[in-house]
Design a protein around this nucleic acid. Structure first.
Length: 289
DNA sequence: CACCATGTTCCTTG
DNA sequence: CCAAGGAACATGGT
């Protein structure tokens, strides 16, 4: 569920449900989730605070809260969904799901952070934000900076795109998608891309992310634990979204025909992750060895 | 049993 | 010192 578009859509849905809600109780069910702090630290910090805002930065959800009578003494905490994290509100009397990692009791119900693989974070430690590069959909993602960051590295371009200090929020799915649309082979060393290609890639990154946000997320967002529509449940597929495959042109499509030229899509492994590409549309790098 | 999975950090290697 | 590569984290699906 979690690359930039999924986190953005989640934030859009959760924001009106958590803003101005009071945190009555903080429960950490997996201690490592809140490292380097302890669950006690977290409870002490958050309890009785009122949530003021919810923002997304890269793949992080950034909550800002304050004490009841001191709106100016702000406290921030982060949630990162890792690979399998989910965040939703459920009635306070409902039992917590399997692999619940944390739970905030709000006025409206429980804000539950469920995380099967426990790669996610619920933490007061804001230092990860310092390592984030520009937001791809903001003006800070300048062509100049992007050109510089790519032309100073021999890393394969696909691997480079996963570096959150270059562009914040691009993950394994959208890296493949953006490169396919830019017709750039994922194995090309970053410093062999021409300025024109880099500009094109910058555009396809932005397009692919914007499109995914608009569709309401590409990977099914799992809103709503029950199909009933009381507005509190977030599980299952968002109703207004079209199917997952239609929006992903190469990701998870190994051996299927390229939507552009019918060549079978290839899968390769880079940095221990799968990359998908069309070997015809995305011409391989020169061999220089 | 094998291999795969939307991510990040830490440690080692060169 | 730095860039790059790989392991580790942990659980579940196929």
């Amino acid at each position: 569920m979690p690359e930039l578009p999924e986190v953005e859509v989640l934030a859009l849905h959760l924001r009106p449900l958590v803003e101005s809600q009071t945190i009555h109780h903080t429960q950490i069910l997996r201690d490592k989730t809140c490292r380097p702090h302890t669950p006690q630290d977290l409870g002490k910090a958050l309890n009785q605070h009122q949530i003021q805002s919810l923002e997304r930065l890269g793949k992080y959800l950034v909550f800002t809260a304050h004490p009841p009578d001191a709106p100016s003494s702000k406290l921030r905490f982060l949630i990162h969904l890792g690979m399998t994290g989910r965040l939703f509100i459920q009635p306070a009397d409902q039992p917590l799901p399997k692999h619940a990692a944390a739970c905030l009791t709000l006025d409206r119900g429980n804000l539950v952070f469920q995380d099967t693989r426990y790669f996610g974070r619920f933490t007061l430690d804001l230092s990860p934000l310092e390592r984030l590069g520009p937001e791809p959909l903001s003006v800070n993602f300048t062509a100049n900076r992007f050109v510089h960051d790519l032309q100073t590295s021999r890393q394969p371009i696909k691997v480079r795109l996963l570096d959150q200090s270059i562009v914040a929020g691009v993950g394994n799915i959208y890296a493949s998608e953006a490169l396919f649309r830019a017709r750039i082979h994922p194995a090309r060393p970053a410093n062999t891309l021409t300025p024109t290609e880099i500009h094109t890639l910058r555009n396809t990154i932005r397009t692919v992310l914007r499109q995914a946000i608009r569709f309401g997320s590409t990977v099914p967002l799992n809103f709503s634990a029950s199909p009933s529509s009381n507005g509190l449940f977030y599980y299952g597929t968002a109703p207004e979204t079209t199917s997952y495959e239609e929006r992903l042109l190469v990701y998870d499509r190994e051996h299927l025909p390229c939507t552009h030229c019918r060549t079978p899509i290839q899968r390769l492994t880079q940095a221990q992750r799968s990359t998908y590409l069309c070997p015809t549309c995305q011409t391989p790098p020169q061999k220089t060895r």
